[in-house]
Design a binder for these strands. Sequence first.
DNA 1: TCAAAAGTGTTAAACGTACACCCATGA
DNA 2: TCATGGGTGTACGTTTAACACTTTTGA
Lengths: 206, 206
Amino acid sequence: MEVAVELVLFTVRDDRLQVLLTPRPERPALPGGLVGPQEAVEEAARRVLREQTGFGDAYIEQLYTFGDPGRDPARRTISVAYFALLRSDSAGLPSGATWRFVKSLPSLPFDHDAIIRTALARLRAKLSYSTVGFQLLPAAFTLTELQRLYEVILARRIDKRNFRKKLLTMGLLKPVPGRRASGPHRPAQLYAFRTRRLRFLDGQLV
Amino acid sequence: MEVAVELVLFTVRDDRLQVLLTPRPERPALPGGLVGPQEAVEEAARRVLREQTGFGDAYIEQLYTFGDPGRDPARRTISVAYFALLRSDSAGLPSGATWRFVKSLPSLPFDHDAIIRTALARLRAKLSYSTVGFQLLPAAFTLTELQRLYEVILARRIDKRNFRKKLLTMGLLKPVPGRRASGPHRPAQLYAFRTRRLRFLDGQLV
DNA sequence: TCAAAAGTGTTAAACGTACACCCATGA
DNA sequence: TCATGGGTGTACGTTTAACACTTTTGA
């Protein structure tokens, strides 16, 4: 029996949640590949990330294992899906791979539609009770940028004052020197996360 | 490469959280087995439940996939762990299998210690925001029995009045005819879950 | 009659949510 | 000077958490 990994790599650019697809003979699909005989499953996921997306330092976490016979008509494959988040300031795109808006995805081969739905549900749920969303932002960012990130992923508006109050009270952020000027208005203070590592929150963030 | 399933089957009896171990040549371990060539992974988990535990109607859900090379020194196996809950009134125990207190487990082979830790964390987390704990009780039960269940799993005391208020307000339970007399004191009203199916709750239950 | 668990409300604090205006800037 | 997003506080309703006594029963 073959064991594969699939990668659902999300990023937020231009105020849209996007997912990376790689070219396949038939039609684009999620990046993926077989797990090597001496390779840990998570290692394989990181290798696929490196080789097929060209991005090295994404956040990665195991999502779910899809193992119905018939999910790949050609051969029996069990696939461990991983969920990955890429900082919006990551540069480059490997040849052939494309970012697609999650809102307007084409129909994907195998069970990749279901995998993406599962990943999106995980991302949305985890935004509320953990700092996982922080993985999508660069080292310094404005509070509005952070709020837009949440709004884009959750597909709903968030109150600016309540959002800021919550984040600052929780002590997740620290102001860093510098401001971002982006048009004919007051420049915004830059902030950074107090720690880059994933934290689970006491209450609900959003 | 071989793909296996492992089963972490919990039950609560005698006010203790217990997990089922099956005999192995070396020492007891989690029930498990290989996934057949034409078998869905979840099907394999249900088959292991049937064949190795003798219990047919447990709640089952995928937990995590453990795939480090070296987790089984004998051969390369990737294992999809499942988490299962058995009603405390289920009768019978298959030959050789034993219930062990989760609090005082012996050291287990392979990475089974880690699998049980992961399962316990999932169970505790899910108790708070879903009705998954209901799978551990028979069709009719008293409010005290339900509360004891939560206390045993979470390993902490819960306020009786607040617990009852929350459950009744949420409309998860309905009283059913009958009372349970269990000693020299007032008998307790019996209740049942309004629906057996898993529900995710708006707020926190405990 | 006694011991034991069943059953039942109130209060204070914390939290969530809704809401509107002035500020600083570049064009 | 004007258009734009940055930045800030309050008040109300809901939820959580702490807390103690009476009731019913079997022994």
